[in-house]
C-alpha cells in the first residue's frame, strides 16, 4: 500500500532532486561553514588542559598556561590569611606529589581537607599554583555522604 503511494512520485522526484535550487545549497554551505568555523575557533581559544597533579608536574609545556588540575586537599595544609583574603593549601593525587595552591576569593561551603577540588589557574615557576577558580566536587552528589549505619 505504501509502495503504491510513493511509487508514482518516485521517478519525477528523482529528476527533481538534482534541481535543489542553488540558493539553498549556497545558504546551507555558508551556514554550515560558519558553524564549523565558530566551533573550531572557539575550541582553540577556550580549551584548557585538565590534569592531575602528577601530570602537571610531568608536563614541560604547561608553565604559564591556564590549566585545570584536580586533586584532594591535603590534611592540615589549609592556611587562611584573613588580611589579604587569601588561602594557601596543598592538593595531591592519592599519596603522591603535593602541590601548593594559592587562591583568593570566596571559598565554597564544603571546602576542607580531604575533599576533591578542581583548581583553575597557572603553575608559577616557583612551583606554586595560582588559582583563579576553585571548585569543590561534592555539592550536588545525589547520594548520601556517609554510608548508612547498617547492622551487618
Amino acid at each position: 500500500m505504501a509502495i503504491e503511494q510513493v511509487t508514482p512520485v518516485e521517478t519525477p522526484a528523482r529528476s527533481k532532486r538534482r534541481k535543489v535550487p542553488w540558493s539553498f545549497i549556497i545558504a546551507g554551505v555558508v551556514i554550515a561553514g560558519a558553524i564549523v568555523y565558530l566551533v573550531l575557533a572557539n575550541t582553540g581559544s577556550s580549551a584548557e588542559y585538565y590534569m592531575t597533579v602528577n601530570q602537571l608536574r610531568a608536563c614541560s609545556s604547561c608553565a604559564a598556561r591556564t590549566v585545570r588540575v584536580s586533586g584532594i586537599v591535603v590534611a592540615n595544609s589549609i592556611v587562611h590569611d584573613n588580611a589579604t583574603q587569601t588561602i594557601h593549601f596543598q592538593i595531591s593525587d592519592t599519596n603522591s606529589t603535593k602541590m601548593t595552591v594559592v587562591y583568593s576569593g570566596v571559598v565554597p561551603d564544603i571546602f576542607k581537607a580531604g575533599v576533591q577540588v578542581v583548581v583553575e589557574g597557572t603553575l608559577g615557576s616557583n612551583g606554586v599554583f595560582q588559582a583563579q577558580n576553585l571548585l569543590t566536587k561534592c555539592p550536588s552528589k545525589f547520594q548520601a555522604a556517609t554510608p548508612p549505619p547498617s547492622g551487618q
Partner: peptide
C-alpha cells in the same frame, strides 16, 4: 521510499526559514 513530494522553490520562503532554523538548531 523517502522521496520528497514537492520540489523546493525559493529560498526566501517559509520552508527556507524553517530550514535555516533547523540548521541553526542542529548547529
Amino acid at each position: 521510499r523517502l522521496r520528497p513530494e514537492h520540489e523546493w522553490d525559493s529560498f526566501v520562503s517559509r520552508e527556507g526559514g524553517f530550514l535555516v532554523n533547523n540548521w541553526l538548531l542542529t548547529g
